[in-house]
C-alpha cells in the first residue's frame, strides 16, 4: 500500500462517521489571510413540502495572524409567510494548521460554538478542514465535523457531518463547483458558482451561490444557498 492510499484511508476513516445535522451553508477552506477583516451575509432557503424556510446569518470576522481567524454570527430564522425571529448566536475559530502547498494536502481546524436565544439549546463542534490542489485548476475541499448539542429544551446528542466541494478555478470572478452535504437530516448535492470581485486596494467581495438537490426523502427537494463576504 503506497503513501497516497494510506493517507486516503486515514481521511476516509476520519470522515466515515455517522451522518448528522449541520446547516448547508458553505464548505470551509483551511486558509487564513493575515489581518483580514470580513463582513458577511449568508442565507439558506429550503423548500419543506412547499413551505419555505429561510435561514439568515450575518457575521463579522478578523484574522489575528496568519494562522487564526475568528468570526461571530447573528443567526436568524424565518418562515417566509410568518415573519422573522431571532434564532441565536454563533462564534467560530479557524486554525490553519499547515502552509498552503507544503504537504500532500492542506489542513485546518474549525471550532464552533452556538446558542439559541429563547430556548436552552447549545452546541459546540470541532471540524477538520482539508483541501488538495488536484491540478492547477481543480481543487478538492472537504470538512468533517463532530458536534455535541445540549440544553434543557433539547435532547443531548452527538452528531457528525461531512461537506465536500470539487471546484474548477476558471477565473477570479467565476468558479463553478459541485458540492455535497451529508448529515443525519440532510443528504444533498448540487452545483455552485462562486467568485471574487476586486474593489479598491485590499477590498474585495467574495460571493457564492449554490443549488442543492435532496438525495433522500427526508431532505428538502431544493435548497438554495448563497453568501457575500466583504473583505477589507
Amino acid at each position: 500500500m503506497n503513501k497516497f492510499s494510506i493517507q486516503c484511508g486515514l481521511l476516509l476513516c476520519t470522515l466515515n462517521t455517522l451522518p448528522v445535522y449541520a446547516e448547508m451553508n458553505r464548505v470551509y477552506h483551511p486558509y487564513v489571510e493575515q489581518y483580514e477583516r470580513e463582513l458577511e451575509y449568508g442565507f439558506t432557503l429550503r423548500d419543506f413540502n412547499n413551505e419555505k424556510e429561510l435561514l439568515n446569518r450575518a457575521g463579522i470576522g478578523y484574522a489575528w495572524n496568519d494562522k487564526i481567524f475568528t468570526e461571530v454570527y447573528l443567526l436568524t430564522e424565518s418562515i417566509t409567510h410568518e415573519g422573522k425571529q431571532i434564532r441565536g448566536y454563533e462564534a467560530e475559530i479557524k486554525w490553519q494548521l499547515t502552509e498552503q502547498g507544503e504537504y500532500w494536502a492542506d489542513w485546518g481546524l474549525l471550532l464552533e460554538a452556538g446558542t439559541a436565544r429563547e430556548i436552552s439549546s447549545h452546541e459546540i463542534s470541532l471540524g477538520i478542514l482539508w483541501e488538495k490542489e488536484l491540478t492547477n485548476r481543480w481543487v478538492a475541499t472537504a470538512n468533517a465535523s463532530a458536534e455535541y448539542e445540549y440544553g434543557s429544551d433539547i435532547v443531548d446528542e452527538f452528531e457528525t457531518a461531512l461537506r465536500a466541494q470539487l471546484r474548477y478555478r476558471y477565473s477570479v470572478t467565476i468558479e463553478p463547483a459541485i458540492e455535497f452535504y451529508l448529515d443525519d437530516q440532510d443528504w444533498a448535492a448540487g452545483p455552485a458558482l462562486m467568485g471574487t470581485v476586486k474593489l479598491s486596494g485590499r477590498k474585495q467581495m467574495r460571493w457564492e451561490l449554490g443549488l442543492l438537490f435532496g438525495l433522500d426523502e427526508g431532505t428538502p427537494e431544493n435548497t438554495v444557498r448563497g453568501g457575500f463576504e466583504f473583505e477589507f
Partner: peptide, 22 residues
C-alpha cells in the same frame, strides 16, 4: 490567482510560499 496563492509579508519580515508542481 494563477498560482492560487495569497500571503501577507509584514514590513521588515519574510514569508514562505510553496508553489507547484506546475
Amino acid at each position: 490567482y494563477e498560482l492560487n496563492r495569497e500571503k501577507i509579508i509584514m514590513g521588515g519580515a519574510k514569508a514562505i510560499i510553496f508553489i507547484g508542481p506546475l
